[in-house]
Design a protein around this nucleic acid. Structure first.
Ligand SMILES: [Mn+2]
Ligand SMILES: [Mn+2]
Ligand SMILES: [Zn+2]
Ligand SMILES: [Zn+2]
Lengths: 155, 155
DNA sequence: GCCCTTATTGCAAATCATTTGCAATAATTA
DNA sequence: TAATTATTGCAAATGATTTGCAATAAGGGC
């Protein structure tokens, strides 16, 4: 069983919580989906298997997972101001969002630890976590815009 | 006159926009305030000088500044999910938020450029901007929690 | 397996943050 | 100073998320 799901079971057990069908379903989707769904997107996916699932339940589950530090929520620079949710496990990572097509690419870096310690040393704070979001053009949108520039130059 | 304010005048001129009392006031606050107010906080501050100022006007002004890239908006991990606004000028910088007292500390780093180029090289994307948010305990809250730990140990 | 307790759900309504339509006002320009 | 129209304040709308509550179902003990 995945890290996320076994962690969820453990937290529920220690809190006297219950593993419902709804939670099991949402967890399995979050676990396997290689994306960053909004609550609504997650609902749509989940309803294929449980058509009666309610948006409130999705939010309640996500907020619980967030409080347990098993899921992180963030707002990217998009038109609709909906939070996007991301399983924290198996590994911490960062995000790039294409300003053109809005696709998100995940990436890792060992350089953030240097930034953390640099900041800790100069400020006296203790840093427990950090996240980086980069914006720009993804490879394919970049091609598109190069082509457009050529069009403009050549006419 | 500050970079922010002179830039605002310039953009207005080139767009046939008007420099109203409301905009002048909001700009001067954003320019001098060393914080990251929400729209509502900004309204409260501004109403000391213009009691009739309306929240819509605050939002409209902030969104215009955001579109002009003179202000950035972000959501920190707080209880209330309100955006916080930050003058982009005079210089790009990053943020640390204390998870305990919610205070924000700004910091600079030259290491982000390395992360950007590392990502650009490995992904083929082109990165135009990036932001880092760190979370942890600020110096004074850190002291508090050290004291608490001692209390617990000593009894 | 069945019962009991109560955590969780679905639903509808509420709340919170932000945006919008519109008539009145005020900044610019001639 | 008058004409033009961008901007404002206000109230209502919208979009995202949360909440109260009665009905349901998990899971522990029998
Ligand atoms: Mn991710
Ligand atoms: Mn700042
Ligand atoms: Zn793209
Ligand atoms: Zn603090």
């Amino acid at each position: 069983m995945s890290e996320l799901i076994s962690q969820a079971y453990e937290r529920l057990r220690s809190q006297g919580g219950r593993m419902t069908n709804q939670r099991r379903l949402l967890l399995s989707i979050l676990d396997s989906l290689g994306e960053h769904p909004t609550a609504e997107e997650l609902l749509l996916i989940a309803r294929k298997q449980d058509p009666d699932l309610n948006l409130s339940t999705v939010y309640r589950t996500l907020r619980w997972l967030e409080a347990e530090n098993l899921v992180s929520a963030r707002l990217f620079a998009e038109e609709r101001r909906q939070e996007r949710f991301d399983a924290v496990l198996p590994s911490e990572h960062h995000h790039f969002m294409c300003t053109n097509c809005k696709n998100v690419i995940e990436f890792d870096t060992e350089l953030l630890v240097d930034i953390k310690s640099q900041f800790q040393d100069s400020s006296g704070a203790s840093v427990s976590m950090g996240s980086i979001v980069l914006y720009g053009l993804c490879p394919s949108c970049r091609q598109g815009s190069v082509a457009q520039e050529l069009d403009r130059e050549v006419g």
